Amino acid sequence: MLVHALVRTDGTVDAGELYTVAGLLGMTDQQVRLCVGRLVAEGRFRQDGRGRRAVLRAVSDATSGALAPDAEHIRHAYRQDDGLAPWDGTWHLFAFAVPEARRTVRDALRETLLHLGAAPVQGGLYVAANPIADLVEARARSLDALDSVTFLTSTDLRLGDLTEPARLAARIWPLDAVAARHERLAAFAEACAESIDGSALSGAERLTLAVELAAGFSDAMTPDPLLPPELLPPHWPGRRARRLTRACWAALSALPPEPGAPASPPRLFQLYDDAFAVPEETGPAGPA
Rank of each mutant, 00 (worst) to 15 (best):
M1I: 04
M1F: 06
H4N: 10
R8I: 03
T9I: 10
T12M: 06
A15H: 13
G16L: 00
E17M: 13
L18M: 12
Y19V: 00
T20V: 07
L24D: 09
M27F: 14
D29I: 14
Q30E: 15
V32L: 07
V32K: 09
R33L: 15
L34A: 14
G37C: 03
R38L: 13
G43S: 01
Q47V: 11
D48V: 09
G49L: 01
G49Y: 04
R50I: 14
G51K: 00
G51C: 04
R52G: 11
R57S: 15
V59H: 02
T63W: 10
T63G: 14
G65C: 04
A66F: 09
A66H: 07
L67H: 07
A68S: 09
P69T: 00
D70V: 05
A71N: 02
E72H: 12
R79L: 15
G83A: 04
W91E: 06
L93Q: 11
L93A: 14
F94A: 01
A95G: 12
A101S: 11
R106V: 06
A108F: 07
A108Y: 07
L109T: 07
R110I: 01
L113V: 00
L116I: 04
L116K: 03
A118H: 04
V121D: 07
G123H: 11
G123P: 06
L125V: 14
V127W: 12
A129L: 05
N130V: 14
D134I: 06
D134G: 09
D134Q: 07
V136I: 09
D144L: 05
D147R: 06
S148F: 06
V149K: 00
V149M: 03
L152Y: 11
T153F: 14
T153R: 15
L157S: 05
R158I: 03
D161V: 11
L162W: 13
P165K: 03
L168G: 05
L168C: 07
A170R: 08
I172W: 11
W173I: 00
W173N: 01
L175W: 14
V178R: 12
A180C: 11
R181I: 13
R181N: 12
E183D: 12
F188E: 06
A189S: 10
A189Y: 08
A191E: 12
E194N: 06
S195G: 11
S195R: 14
A200K: 08
S202M: 05
S202Y: 08
G203Y: 08
A204G: 09
A204Q: 12
R206T: 04
L209N: 02
L213E: 03
A215Q: 12
F217M: 10
S218A: 07
A220D: 10
P225G: 01
L227G: 04
P229M: 10
P233K: 07
P233G: 04
H235D: 14
P237W: 10
G238H: 11
L244M: 00
W249Y: 08
W249T: 02
L252I: 02
L255D: 04
P256I: 01
E258M: 05
E258D: 10
P259V: 06
G260S: 01
G260H: 01
S264L: 08
S264R: 09
P266M: 02
P266E: 03
P266V: 05
R267K: 05
R267W: 09
Q270E: 10
Y272I: 01
D273N: 08
A277K: 01
E281C: 13
T282A: 15
G283T: 07
P284Q: 02
G286I: 02
P287G: 13
